[in-house]
Amino acid sequence: MLFTIAQFIKAAIIQGIPLLFGATGEIITEKSGNLNLGIPGIMYVGGISGIIGGYLYEHGNDNPVPILCILISLACSLMGSALMSLIYAFLTQTLKANQNVTGLALTTFGIGLGNFFGGSLLKFFGETGSISLLSTGLAYKKALPFADKLGLFGDTFLSFGFLAYLAIIIAIVSSLFLSRTRAGLNLRAIGENPATADAAGINITKYKYLSTIAGGMIAGLGGLYFVMDYTAGAWTNNGFGDRGWLAIAIVIFALWKPKSAIWSSFIFGGLYIICVYIPGLSSSAKEIIKMLPYLVTILVLIFISAKKKKEHQPPASLGLSYFREDR
Protein backbone atom coordinates (compact mmCIF):
# COMPACT_ATOMS: atom_id res chain seq x y z
CA MET A 1 0.00 0.00 0.00
CA LEU A 2 2.73 2.41 1.02
CA PHE A 3 4.54 1.50 -2.12
CA THR A 4 1.48 2.25 -4.25
CA ILE A 5 1.03 5.62 -2.59
CA ALA A 6 4.71 6.40 -3.12
CA GLN A 7 4.34 5.39 -6.73
CA PHE A 8 1.32 7.64 -7.08
CA ILE A 9 3.11 10.60 -5.53
CA LYS A 10 6.06 10.10 -7.81
CA ALA A 11 3.80 9.86 -10.84
CA ALA A 12 1.90 12.97 -9.72
CA ILE A 13 5.15 14.93 -9.47
CA ILE A 14 6.28 13.73 -12.88
CA GLN A 15 2.94 14.76 -14.36
CA GLY A 16 3.04 18.01 -12.44
CA ILE A 17 6.45 19.26 -13.63
CA PRO A 18 5.45 20.23 -17.20
CA LEU A 19 2.35 21.86 -15.74
CA LEU A 20 4.47 23.81 -13.28
CA PHE A 21 6.71 25.16 -16.03
CA GLY A 22 3.65 26.16 -18.05
CA ALA A 23 1.91 27.74 -15.08
CA THR A 24 4.96 29.71 -13.88
CA GLY A 25 5.55 30.98 -17.41
CA GLU A 26 1.93 32.01 -17.79
CA ILE A 27 1.89 33.75 -14.40
CA ILE A 28 4.95 35.83 -15.30
CA THR A 29 3.27 36.71 -18.59
CA GLU A 30 -0.12 37.48 -17.08
CA LYS A 31 1.38 39.70 -14.38
CA SER A 32 2.22 42.14 -17.17
CA GLY A 33 -1.42 42.10 -18.29
CA ASN A 34 -0.81 39.81 -21.26
CA LEU A 35 -3.18 36.85 -21.33
CA ASN A 36 -1.09 34.52 -23.46
CA LEU A 37 -3.38 31.69 -24.53
CA GLY A 38 -0.64 30.60 -26.88
CA ILE A 39 1.08 28.79 -24.00
CA PRO A 40 -0.13 25.30 -25.03
CA GLY A 41 1.29 25.87 -28.51
CA ILE A 42 4.49 27.37 -27.12
CA MET A 43 4.98 24.27 -24.97
CA TYR A 44 4.66 22.09 -28.07
CA VAL A 45 7.23 24.25 -29.83
CA GLY A 46 9.50 24.12 -26.77
CA GLY A 47 9.34 20.33 -27.01
CA ILE A 48 9.86 19.97 -30.74
CA SER A 49 12.67 22.56 -30.91
CA GLY A 50 14.50 20.59 -28.24
CA ILE A 51 13.91 17.41 -30.22
CA ILE A 52 15.22 18.99 -33.43
CA GLY A 53 18.33 20.30 -31.70
CA GLY A 54 18.95 17.00 -29.97
CA TYR A 55 18.39 15.06 -33.17
CA LEU A 56 20.79 17.18 -35.21
CA TYR A 57 23.51 16.68 -32.63
CA GLU A 58 22.90 13.04 -31.74
CA HIS A 59 22.59 11.79 -35.30
CA GLY A 60 25.73 13.51 -36.47
CA ASN A 61 27.73 11.87 -33.70
CA ASP A 62 28.52 8.30 -32.90
CA ASN A 63 29.40 9.10 -29.32
CA PRO A 64 27.26 11.99 -28.18
CA VAL A 65 28.50 13.76 -25.05
CA PRO A 66 25.64 13.93 -22.49
CA ILE A 67 26.30 17.53 -21.43
CA LEU A 68 26.30 18.69 -25.05
CA CYS A 69 23.09 16.75 -25.68
CA ILE A 70 21.51 18.73 -22.91
CA LEU A 71 22.98 22.14 -23.77
CA ILE A 72 22.15 21.97 -27.47
CA SER A 73 18.59 20.77 -27.06
CA LEU A 74 18.02 23.17 -24.17
CA ALA A 75 19.25 26.12 -26.21
CA CYS A 76 17.12 25.13 -29.18
CA SER A 77 14.05 24.70 -27.00
CA LEU A 78 14.52 28.11 -25.38
CA MET A 79 15.01 29.74 -28.76
CA GLY A 80 11.90 28.11 -30.19
CA SER A 81 9.63 29.19 -27.37
CA ALA A 82 11.23 32.64 -27.22
CA LEU A 83 10.45 33.14 -30.90
CA MET A 84 6.85 32.06 -30.39
CA SER A 85 6.36 34.46 -27.50
CA LEU A 86 8.08 37.20 -29.47
CA ILE A 87 5.39 36.78 -32.13
CA TYR A 88 2.75 37.11 -29.43
CA ALA A 89 4.39 40.17 -27.88
CA PHE A 90 4.84 41.85 -31.24
CA LEU A 91 1.27 41.25 -32.35
CA THR A 92 -0.41 42.24 -29.10
CA GLN A 93 1.93 44.94 -27.92
CA THR A 94 3.24 46.66 -31.01
CA LEU A 95 0.32 45.98 -33.36
CA LYS A 96 -2.29 45.98 -30.54
CA ALA A 97 -3.93 42.82 -31.88
CA ASN A 98 -6.58 41.15 -29.74
CA GLN A 99 -4.84 39.02 -27.14
CA ASN A 100 -7.28 36.12 -27.11
CA VAL A 101 -7.32 35.71 -30.86
CA THR A 102 -3.54 35.97 -31.09
CA GLY A 103 -3.03 33.44 -28.32
CA LEU A 104 -5.46 30.89 -29.72
CA ALA A 105 -3.91 31.23 -33.17
CA LEU A 106 -0.45 30.66 -31.70
CA THR A 107 -1.65 27.53 -29.92
CA THR A 108 -3.09 26.08 -33.11
CA PHE A 109 0.08 27.05 -34.94
CA GLY A 110 2.41 25.66 -32.28
CA ILE A 111 0.67 22.30 -32.08
CA GLY A 112 0.67 22.03 -35.85
CA LEU A 113 4.35 22.97 -36.01
CA GLY A 114 5.22 20.36 -33.39
CA ASN A 115 3.30 17.62 -35.16
CA PHE A 116 4.66 18.60 -38.55
CA PHE A 117 8.30 18.33 -37.54
CA GLY A 118 7.55 15.38 -35.29
CA GLY A 119 6.12 13.51 -38.25
CA SER A 120 8.57 14.56 -40.93
CA LEU A 121 11.92 15.28 -39.25
CA LEU A 122 13.22 11.75 -39.94
CA LYS A 123 12.04 11.87 -43.55
CA PHE A 124 14.14 14.98 -44.17
CA PHE A 125 17.15 12.90 -43.31
CA GLY A 126 16.00 9.88 -45.28
CA GLU A 127 15.27 7.79 -42.23
CA THR A 128 12.18 5.88 -41.26
CA GLY A 129 10.55 4.99 -37.97
CA SER A 130 9.81 7.40 -35.16
CA ILE A 131 12.01 9.92 -33.38
CA SER A 132 13.87 8.47 -30.44
CA LEU A 133 16.84 10.31 -28.93
CA LEU A 134 18.31 7.73 -26.64
CA SER A 135 21.44 9.56 -25.48
CA THR A 136 19.72 12.88 -24.97
CA GLY A 137 16.83 11.23 -23.16
CA LEU A 138 19.21 9.42 -20.86
CA ALA A 139 21.15 12.59 -20.14
CA TYR A 140 17.97 14.41 -19.13
CA LYS A 141 16.70 11.52 -17.03
CA LYS A 142 19.87 11.23 -14.95
CA ALA A 143 18.75 11.30 -11.33
CA LEU A 144 20.63 12.77 -8.36
CA PRO A 145 23.58 10.47 -7.60
CA PHE A 146 22.46 9.59 -4.08
CA ALA A 147 18.78 8.99 -4.96
CA ASP A 148 19.02 5.21 -5.11
CA LYS A 149 20.72 5.04 -1.72
CA LEU A 150 17.75 6.54 0.09
CA GLY A 151 15.25 3.77 -0.48
CA LEU A 152 11.61 4.63 -1.00
CA PHE A 153 12.10 8.31 -0.08
CA GLY A 154 14.86 8.69 -2.60
CA ASP A 155 12.83 6.97 -5.25
CA THR A 156 9.73 9.05 -4.61
CA PHE A 157 11.27 12.50 -4.30
CA LEU A 158 14.80 12.47 -5.68
CA SER A 159 14.73 10.24 -8.72
CA PHE A 160 13.90 12.92 -11.27
CA GLY A 161 16.03 14.54 -13.91
CA PHE A 162 17.42 18.04 -13.31
CA LEU A 163 14.58 19.83 -15.11
CA ALA A 164 12.16 18.79 -12.37
CA TYR A 165 14.18 20.61 -9.73
CA LEU A 166 14.70 23.52 -12.09
CA ALA A 167 10.92 23.87 -12.36
CA ILE A 168 10.59 24.29 -8.62
CA ILE A 169 13.58 26.65 -8.40
CA ILE A 170 12.17 28.83 -11.20
CA ALA A 171 8.79 28.98 -9.47
CA ILE A 172 10.39 30.08 -6.19
CA VAL A 173 12.66 32.61 -7.89
CA SER A 174 9.68 34.00 -9.81
CA SER A 175 7.77 34.38 -6.60
CA LEU A 176 10.66 36.28 -4.98
CA PHE A 177 11.09 38.37 -8.11
CA LEU A 178 7.45 39.45 -8.08
CA SER A 179 7.27 40.24 -4.37
CA ARG A 180 10.75 41.44 -3.44
CA THR A 181 12.22 43.41 -6.32
CA ARG A 182 11.60 46.81 -7.87
CA ALA A 183 11.25 45.22 -11.28
CA GLY A 184 8.66 42.82 -9.89
CA LEU A 185 6.71 45.70 -8.35
CA ASN A 186 6.82 47.59 -11.63
CA LEU A 187 5.70 44.51 -13.56
CA ARG A 188 2.74 43.94 -11.26
CA ALA A 189 1.78 47.60 -11.53
CA ILE A 190 1.66 47.30 -15.32
CA GLY A 191 -0.69 44.34 -15.13
CA GLU A 192 -2.92 46.14 -12.65
CA ASN A 193 -2.99 49.68 -13.96
CA PRO A 194 -0.82 50.46 -16.97
CA ALA A 195 -1.79 54.13 -17.04
CA THR A 196 -0.44 54.58 -13.52
CA ALA A 197 2.71 52.66 -14.34
CA ASP A 198 3.16 54.81 -17.43
CA ALA A 199 2.76 57.99 -15.43
CA ALA A 200 5.36 56.66 -12.98
CA GLY A 201 7.84 56.52 -15.84
CA ILE A 202 7.92 52.73 -16.29
CA ASN A 203 8.67 51.52 -19.80
CA ILE A 204 5.57 49.45 -20.40
CA THR A 205 6.53 48.08 -23.79
CA LYS A 206 9.86 46.82 -22.52
CA TYR A 207 8.35 45.12 -19.49
CA LYS A 208 5.55 43.51 -21.48
CA TYR A 209 7.92 42.18 -24.11
CA LEU A 210 10.44 40.84 -21.61
CA SER A 211 7.91 39.21 -19.32
CA THR A 212 6.05 37.62 -22.22
CA ILE A 213 9.23 36.22 -23.72
CA ALA A 214 10.65 35.07 -20.38
CA GLY A 215 7.30 33.50 -19.51
CA GLY A 216 7.16 31.73 -22.87
CA MET A 217 10.68 30.37 -22.44
CA ILE A 218 9.82 29.01 -19.00
CA ALA A 219 6.65 27.41 -20.33
CA GLY A 220 8.57 25.92 -23.27
CA LEU A 221 10.78 24.06 -20.80
CA GLY A 222 7.64 22.17 -19.79
CA GLY A 223 7.40 20.82 -23.32
CA LEU A 224 11.09 19.98 -23.26
CA TYR A 225 10.76 18.12 -19.96
CA PHE A 226 7.91 16.12 -21.41
CA VAL A 227 9.71 14.95 -24.52
CA MET A 228 13.16 14.50 -23.01
CA ASP A 229 12.48 13.19 -19.51
CA TYR A 230 8.91 11.86 -19.44
CA THR A 231 9.03 10.12 -22.80
CA ALA A 232 12.84 9.78 -22.75
CA GLY A 233 13.61 11.48 -26.04
CA ALA A 234 10.74 10.08 -28.09
CA TRP A 235 8.18 12.19 -29.93
CA THR A 236 4.61 11.10 -30.53
CA ASN A 237 2.25 13.42 -32.33
CA ASN A 238 -0.20 15.08 -29.94
CA GLY A 239 1.57 13.20 -27.15
CA PHE A 240 1.69 16.31 -24.98
CA GLY A 241 -2.09 16.41 -25.12
CA ASP A 242 -4.02 19.11 -23.30
CA ARG A 243 -1.41 19.74 -20.62
CA GLY A 244 -0.93 23.31 -21.83
CA TRP A 245 -4.55 24.14 -20.99
CA LEU A 246 -4.14 22.47 -17.63
CA ALA A 247 -1.20 24.78 -16.97
CA ILE A 248 -3.41 27.80 -17.68
CA ALA A 249 -6.05 26.35 -15.37
CA ILE A 250 -3.40 26.07 -12.65
CA VAL A 251 -2.68 29.80 -12.97
CA ILE A 252 -6.24 30.46 -11.86
CA PHE A 253 -6.19 27.69 -9.25
CA ALA A 254 -2.96 29.10 -7.77
CA LEU A 255 -4.44 32.62 -7.77
CA TRP A 256 -1.55 33.99 -9.85
CA LYS A 257 1.06 33.02 -7.24
CA PRO A 258 4.08 31.05 -8.51
CA LYS A 259 4.66 29.49 -5.10
CA SER A 260 1.14 28.12 -4.95
CA ALA A 261 1.60 26.89 -8.50
CA ILE A 262 4.10 24.33 -7.17
CA TRP A 263 1.68 22.33 -5.04
CA SER A 264 -1.20 23.09 -7.40
CA SER A 265 0.73 21.49 -10.24
CA PHE A 266 1.33 18.35 -8.24
CA ILE A 267 -2.36 18.15 -7.27
CA PHE A 268 -3.35 18.60 -10.90
CA GLY A 269 -0.71 16.08 -11.95
CA GLY A 270 -2.17 13.65 -9.44
CA LEU A 271 -5.75 14.23 -10.59
CA TYR A 272 -4.59 13.74 -14.16
CA ILE A 273 -3.40 10.18 -13.52
CA ILE A 274 -5.37 9.13 -10.45
CA CYS A 275 -7.66 7.04 -12.64
CA VAL A 276 -4.78 4.64 -13.24
CA TYR A 277 -4.43 4.06 -9.50
CA ILE A 278 -8.10 3.39 -8.82
CA PRO A 279 -8.65 -0.26 -9.61
CA GLY A 280 -11.62 -1.53 -11.58
CA LEU A 281 -12.57 1.64 -13.45
CA SER A 282 -14.27 1.38 -16.83
CA SER A 283 -12.72 3.42 -19.59
CA SER A 284 -15.57 5.92 -19.58
CA ALA A 285 -15.23 6.40 -15.83
CA LYS A 286 -11.53 7.12 -16.37
CA GLU A 287 -12.37 9.88 -18.81
CA ILE A 288 -14.76 11.42 -16.33
CA ILE A 289 -12.09 11.39 -13.64
CA LYS A 290 -9.62 13.00 -16.03
CA MET A 291 -12.03 15.90 -16.15
CA LEU A 292 -11.56 16.62 -12.45
CA PRO A 293 -8.81 19.25 -12.79
CA TYR A 294 -11.00 21.38 -15.02
CA LEU A 295 -13.96 20.96 -12.72
CA VAL A 296 -11.84 22.07 -9.77
CA THR A 297 -10.71 25.12 -11.75
CA ILE A 298 -14.30 26.11 -12.47
CA LEU A 299 -15.12 25.76 -8.78
CA VAL A 300 -12.14 27.94 -7.86
CA LEU A 301 -13.27 30.56 -10.36
CA ILE A 302 -16.76 30.58 -8.87
CA PHE A 303 -15.30 30.81 -5.40
CA ILE A 304 -12.93 33.71 -6.04
CA SER A 305 -15.53 35.61 -8.06
CA ALA A 306 -18.06 35.27 -5.28
CA LYS A 307 -15.61 36.22 -2.54
CA LYS A 308 -14.34 39.30 -4.37
CA LYS A 309 -11.17 39.50 -2.33
CA LYS A 310 -9.03 41.99 -4.21
CA GLU A 311 -5.78 40.07 -3.81
CA HIS A 312 -7.28 36.96 -5.36
CA GLN A 313 -8.41 38.57 -8.56
CA PRO A 314 -6.54 38.35 -11.85
CA PRO A 315 -4.38 41.36 -12.77
CA ALA A 316 -6.92 44.12 -13.37
CA SER A 317 -5.88 44.93 -16.92
CA LEU A 318 -5.37 41.31 -17.99
CA GLY A 319 -6.19 40.87 -21.66
CA LEU A 320 -6.47 44.58 -22.41
CA SER A 321 -4.26 46.53 -24.76
CA TYR A 322 -2.87 49.73 -23.32
CA PHE A 323 -3.16 52.90 -25.32
CA ARG A 324 -1.58 56.00 -23.93
CA GLU A 325 -4.27 58.62 -23.51
CA ASP A 326 -3.71 61.69 -25.58
CA ARG A 327 -6.77 63.83 -25.14
Binding site: R182, L185, R188, E192, T196, A197, A200, I202, K310, E311
Partner: peptide, 22 residues
Amino acid sequence: KLVDIFTAAENIVLGLKEDGKY
Protein backbone atom coordinates in the same frame (compact mmCIF):
# COMPACT_ATOMS: atom_id res chain seq x y z
CA LYS B 1 -3.10 57.37 -10.54
CA LEU B 2 -2.76 54.60 -7.98
CA VAL B 3 -2.64 50.82 -8.13
CA ASP B 4 -5.56 49.58 -6.05
CA ILE B 5 -4.10 46.38 -4.66
CA PHE B 6 -0.77 47.95 -3.71
CA THR B 7 -0.06 49.56 -0.37
CA ALA B 8 0.53 53.29 -0.02
CA ALA B 9 4.30 52.73 0.20
CA GLU B 10 4.36 50.49 -2.86
CA ASN B 11 2.51 53.12 -4.86
CA ILE B 12 4.85 55.83 -3.67
CA VAL B 13 8.00 53.95 -4.66
CA LEU B 14 6.58 52.68 -7.96
CA GLY B 15 8.81 53.33 -10.93
CA LEU B 16 11.54 55.03 -8.91
CA LYS B 17 15.14 54.16 -9.60
CA GLU B 18 16.56 54.60 -6.14
CA ASP B 19 19.98 53.40 -5.19
CA GLY B 20 20.35 50.54 -2.80
CA LYS B 21 18.40 47.42 -2.11
CA TYR B 22 14.66 47.54 -2.52
